[in-house]
Design a protein around this nucleic acid. Sequence first.
DNA 1: TGGGGTTAT
DNA 2: ATAACCC
Length: 484
Amino acid sequence: IKRYFEEVDSDDADDYVESESEWRQGWEASSSSLTEFTPKSMQSISGLQSTSVSEHKRTIIHIDIDCFYAQVEMILDPALRDKPLGIQQKNIVVTCNYVARGRGISKLSYVNDAVKLCPELVLVSGEDLTKYRKMSYKVTDYFLKFCPLVERLGFDENFIDVTDLVKSRQMTGKVCDVEGHTYSESSDEKVPRIHCLCGCYQRLAIGSQIASELRSGLKDSLGLTCCAGIAHNKLLSKLVAGTHKPNQQTVLFPHQADEMMLSLKNIKQIPGIGSSMSKRLAAMGIVSVQQLRSAQLNCIQQELGAQLAGIILNLSHGRDPTPVVQTGAPQSLSEEDSFKKCNSVEDARNRSRKLIRSLLRRLKEDGRVPHTLRVAIRKFSLPKQWTRENRQCALPESILQNANLDDDTVTEKLLDVAMQLFIKLVDTSKPFHLTLISICFTKLEDHLKKPSIVTYFKRFAKEQGCQEADGSKDLRHKVLDSSV
DNA sequence: TGGGGTTAT
DNA sequence: ATAACCC
């Protein structure tokens, strides 16, 4: 096989390997007649249809920081390291360290239950996300030092597309083996590695080396441990990252994609299929990945529409063409607070003021200026009503344009805007009962952005009643003619 | 359940 | 503006 790849020099060859059985057939067939082992002959051997030649060409790493909030607290106070630690928000333990997990505490459990389970549990308040947010961006920035394609998912996960990094390492011609675990449900069954380290197998092996370097670098520079999953797309890299759990990494080769997907107990475990979609599919009698796969295409299409059906079905086969997209600066900055009861405008105003104060602090660091403000509330209603309502409006330029963000009058101006929105949400002439207020700044734009020359040309064009600024030449003549 | 985020409709 | 998705 090695000679084959050397002679044919085809990176595409292993893209034809669709499932493990097909791979085996190819393997067995090849050992009897090496010369006939070409992509074409492989196709005839197994009768497989490749979905896309380039489908296995990327190398994606998914990084998942181990119990992120707890790790941040343990770094800030190393004395917490060997104690059972929980992070508390209101009366919920939102996450905990591994010592606490060893005592049977699970994420998102009630404080009462957790303390009953483990009376020595140390609780730290995690309602203010500032430290976690800062560390989170340090992590993303760390990855960005090596590779531009980093996509954040929440505060503690990142996708990294290392395809180009892998390519340049391949140029050196060195062959490397896998670092860390290799995914296989039946763990004693080993992929005959060295024979397979060609094409995408070699690429993913290099990816696992890179992942290992990134992980140890992260530990050295920020003191954080994490899990990594390496695969040819985002879906699989994320799923496989969770297979060996704290502080380990796992690579998944394409022929194991089926096994990975089929190992999921429920379609809800597929990232991208949430509670709403699960319910719709469950209503059609579809609960398992296998059922989803064997469902009639047109049946699902009827129910979901062709586009969505295609995406969902693709996911069930471990296919995910979505690219890793650079996340960059956040699209919105928000803060929220939940409580048992808020039933007066005064109370609402005071709570909103706190939110706006801390948002202004963040805005100052961010450097950008928001152009819209949104207020959201949750009304107390019959349990199981998870409904939030929101109103938004454009922010008057005058408030933030070149204001001192520490100025309390700025806070009060914003608060006035927020309360106008609040009144649209709540009929304050009647009794009300709120359980959450959230304030969100969006449409964040660069502050120091001087209007570019283009802006002036466009404005001028408009004044002159020009059509599209198709020719800046023509425009320039106009400008000169008018002796500006 | 909490305190965040994103994108699609 | 809401609803879906993610952590």
